[in-house]
Amino acid sequence: MIDFRYHLVSIVAIFLALTVGIVLGSTVLETAFYKSAEETTAQLRQWNSENRDKITALQAREDGNASFVTAHTADLVRGQLPGERFVLIEAPGAPAGRRDDIVKVLGDSGAVYTGRVSLTEKFLAADQTNVVDQLASTVAPAGTRFADGASPYEKAAAVLAGAVVTGDRGQAGREDPAAVSVLEAFQTGGFLAMGGSPAQRATVAIVVSPDQAYEGEDAEAQTAAMVSLAAGLDSAGLGTVMVGTTAASGTGGVISALHDAGEAASNVSTVDTVDMPAGRVTVVYALREQLAGRSGAYGVGSDITAFAPPAAPGISPSPKPMASGG
């Protein structure tokens, strides 16, 4: 049997070995270790300094580009959308502070702002889906026909789109009683807020997406609802552009979902640089392109076709064909 003295001797031997190792390490390996550490630290400091200089230079270039575009925005967009009426549709979670910059650049292009519709969090709440379905069916103008198997949000998209946009320029700018009833019903239900006079229907729409992807178990359904709304606006009017930041065109973002939405992706244009002066100019060009019957995905994120459509001051927009039904 192993007695206590054996354990004691073993423990003493272990500590003695550790002590000898420490002494040897601090004397034999000390010089080589510290030299290597100093060289690595010096290299890291150099790389850090170089990267910091590159970041500073890139930021200066970006600030300069932004200042230049801001100073010349009016010249870049002048005459692109003369007399065209536009409405803003803000998705739940979209930053309200973005609307003024969009309205200004569209105004510089000659377009006329009718108003905005800001959807609330309640509009996308899972426990409100049936309410949205019933409300859309109840307030739909006489003669409205929903597609077979239409989801609650596809119905809501058709009804709301018909209330704020039109494909008939002769009806644009005129307050439609049916449109007023639809918007007031959704507002009374707490599903949206309004500014301006969106019932004085526009011909084109800008959908402002949230900067970040929706989260939680209902995120996919919420994202799909906003894609349906953009598709509905495009069908009811002469053109729709969904705008946001690169986060919106990343994984799970609303713009990314639109890019994967088949027919909607080929009809609705997107711009994921609306937080940049050049991106807001791109919104104008994208709307002008929509009026000419074309679409594209613009910006710097994934699934993008180009930073912006080509500028074409002499373009003569022609209405896109109206979708049947709804």
Rank of each mutant, 00 (worst) to 15 (best):
I2Q: 09
Y6C: 00
A13P: 01
F15G: 04
L18S: 03
L18E: 02
I22A: 03
G25L: 13
G25D: 07
V28N: 06
A32C: 00
F33A: 13
Y34N: 15
A37V: 13
E39V: 12
T40P: 00
L44V: 10
R45Y: 02
N48S: 13
R52T: 10
I55E: 12
E62K: 10
A66M: 05
A66F: 06
S67I: 01
H72N: 14
T73M: 11
D75M: 02
R85Q: 09
V87W: 00
G93D: 09
D100S: 11
I102E: 05
G107T: 10
G107H: 08
G110T: 10
G110A: 11
Y113S: 03
G115K: 07
S118Q: 14
D127R: 09
T129P: 00
L135I: 07
A142F: 05
G143E: 12
F146N: 06
A147K: 10
D148Q: 14
G149W: 04
P152W: 05
A156P: 08
A158E: 09
V159M: 11
A161V: 14
G167F: 06
D176G: 02
S181T: 12
F186H: 05
A193S: 15
G196P: 12
A199W: 14
T203A: 07
D211S: 13
Y214K: 12
E215G: 03
G216M: 06
A219I: 05
E220S: 13
A221Y: 01
T223N: 09
M226E: 12
S228T: 05
D234N: 15
S235R: 15
G237C: 06
G237H: 08
V241C: 08
A247T: 09
G253D: 02
H259A: 02
D260M: 09
G262L: 09
E263I: 12
A264R: 03
A265R: 08
R280N: 04
T282P: 00
A286Q: 04
A292M: 15
G293Q: 03
A297K: 14
T305N: 10
A311K: 11
A311R: 13
A312G: 05
S316I: 11
P317H: 14
P319G: 03
A323S: 14
G325E: 10
